[in-house]
Amino acid sequence: MEAAVVNTGTEGKTWGGGNRPLKASYGKMMMWFFIVSDALTFSGFIASYGFSRFKFIDAWPIADEVFTHIPFVHGNYPMYYVAFMTFILIFSSVTMVLAVDAGHHMKKNKVILYMFLTIIGGLIFVGSQAWEWKTFIKGNYGAVETKGGQIIQFFNKDGERVALKDFALPVHTERTTQQKNTGIWYQKEKSLPTVSLSEIKKGFLANDNLVARTQYLDEDGKPIVLSRQESVALMNNDAKGVVEGANLIHNEYGHPLFADFFFFITGFHGFHVFSGVVINIIIFINVILGTYERRKSYEMVEKVGLYWHFVDLVWVFVFTVFYLV
């Protein structure tokens, strides 16, 4: 069939088409544009986190007091575990960029090795994040919520944090978890806290050594600890419920929005890491099968590499705004 080609008379001119002024392939450029748009999405989340934080700037939880755990170790170690996670992610970025480099030199076995290490790093990171979520949800000391939704945490006079179960005194009650068949409109309730509010109140009033700490911060950025008298008044007048751990509605560490943003932003980032691992595995299999050897170009590795580095880039910012600042 005759091709219906019309000469435009612009062949060879700048506007004649076929130019690649950015000297990047279509796929790579689209990956960059996707990354820009995804970066804007994350900025939206992080900026709204900043908005809420500035809105409650005098009552925001201190990250050092929230994330204090290391797996298999007891004690108070702020920051160390999340620093470890950061290193894992940066290191998996390094192996990724080494894989890209090996791809440029068409060294298949090196690409396989480095991509494998990258995938392992990604899995360790996702696993660590899951563990961090578990610890955060489970909670540590427990707290009492007031009628206004403020969080009260308990300290002894030496300034040490005290867990609810350590001072609550037993009160004889018949309160049981409401089941679906006994509830109004067939609503069941979530499991009851391990200690009830009346037990906490009784224990708190009986022990003169305990004081309450509010979620409000003083000029030095430290939460305000009430005197014994103020604490007793607060417990008697305003205490409303027991909070153990954190979910989207209640948060024993302080303002519920902190937990909401933590779940949302680290969750969204974790989902990116997870999808990055899946994409990496797909490309990894292709590398083993020799697809890119036949294609004579490992550019696909470079494209997933871009995505993987972007995930690392986002983590750098999440790390700063959630754990450092």
Binding site: M29, V97, G305, H309
Partner: peptide
């Protein structure tokens, strides 16, 4: 991370600007 891991250093000046300035 952007300049060395994502090879921005090796890209054309205007690809760099399109991505970085926009963001």
């Amino acid at each position: 991370i952007t300049w060395d891991f994502m090879h921005m250093r090796d890209e054309v000046k205007f690809l760099r600007r399109v991505v970085v300035w926009t963001a």
